[in-house]
Design a protein around this nucleic acid. Sequence first.
DNA 1: CGCTTATTTGACGTTCCTCAATATCCGTGG
DNA 2: CCACGGATATTGAGGAACGTCAAATAAGCG
Lengths: 248, 248
Amino acid sequence: MLNERTGVPPHDCEECPIRHRAVCARCESDELEQLDGIKYYRKYEAGQTVIWSGDRMDFVGSVVSGIASLTQTMEDGRTQMVGLLLPSDFVGRPGRATAAYDVVATTDIVMCCFRKAPFEEMMVRTPHIAQRLLEMTLDELDAAREWMLVLGRKTAREKIASLLSIIARRDASVNARPDKSEIVFDLPLTREAMADYLGLTLETVSRQISALRKDGVIALEGKRHVTVPDMTRLLEEAGDDADGGVFA
Amino acid sequence: MLNERTGVPPHDCEECPIRHRAVCARCESDELEQLDGIKYYRKYEAGQTVIWSGDRMDFVGSVVSGIASLTQTMEDGRTQMVGLLLPSDFVGRPGRATAAYDVVATTDIVMCCFRKAPFEEMMVRTPHIAQRLLEMTLDELDAAREWMLVLGRKTAREKIASLLSIIARRDASVNARPDKSEIVFDLPLTREAMADYLGLTLETVSRQISALRKDGVIALEGKRHVTVPDMTRLLEEAGDDADGGVFA
DNA sequence: CGCTTATTTGACGTTCCTCAATATCCGTGG
DNA sequence: CCACGGATATTGAGGAACGTCAAATAAGCG
């Protein structure tokens, strides 16, 4: 039976798809029970804004399914995506009253939200949560720094190849195909969202994707379905070491 | 008396200039004593590399004085600075064996180092350290995201103005001059380091600084000594909201 | 004072952006 | 099932911003 208000079925934490990767990953069952008491699910449709920058935050939470983006906007409308929130990623900053960024659902998403005050209280008492949050924050910091190199020093073509590599790598861990060297995935982002992520215009994104297709680095079916015949080649195009990581 | 090996005078933590901002900020005196047992000071000269990316890390630590930079380099030599380490900033990642970035002393620096294994052990037992580290990491993540907007969406002129604003803001908290609206500081970075921070070439950095000088946004004495007659103007040039923060 | 390094400036080329037109996709209703 | 309309994506032409290469100037240091 669905929860009428949120349209989301209540979950048992033990069966939660992000149980072992989210902020609650290290929690014992008694700790999960406590979290259960302050949690609720919310669903957002693709395109919906979850949080506006500057708004008061009364919750923090985890992305359970779907993809959301974290963006900053300048007064004149220029926008830069500063984070891509995948399942298990954490939203909100304990100890901060207002949101620093816009959070927008890129696909339909489900979030597991915790009321902020009780969550913060619990963090003080529960090292398992604070430890995991530190670990996740350090990972995000690494990802942000990786992205600074992409934004600051890579060409448009390399930027696109970098983004495709990241998406491919993520999907590979889910849709692993040991039999094929070929990688296949759907782009979860519009050309405009890709442009906002990469610090480009959507026209440049489109042109570079066309160029990569023409050069045989990728193949497209429709606008969103991508095939990578040779991952090593894509990584070379991204300007990265062709080794290391999942595809080594 | 100086320590012969490191050339650094031993400090009492209570008198440490970064006592209340570094990773040890929340520690009680008994905790400081424990830290004291695993700490040592090291000094590096401007230009010296503190850590090479990929190297084994046997310590973590705090910058006590001076400025260091965190950089990433691509195979073909393109480099991007991904962090500027100011006094009290933390170096190294607990739980990681090798360095992810190059750390280079931009000015002469003194570091307070902790042997890694005992520090990690202590973190588990000492919530005060883990809490403070989480807070600092969240701040760094915010700074990194701020910088992603600069790298991805700002023009060369705005980038320079942004960097000057940040340095000015930092110095303002130290050399506050309530009597003057004028802000004066020394650039701690070469043109090349500025370029690496901003994702520009050093020629473009030089040209934009000249342009800002010609337009009266800043004044220069020598190459490094900067005067900002009107901070609001500089913030406008940076593309930021002219209000909020220290200079509101 | 001469040497080395940092910085500025100039001329020119390339990349990416802007503006504009066209094409494609996808959901909706006939 | 197909036609229509709005959103999304592609493609083209021209321009602006920034990078590259090269030379001149200034600054710091012995």
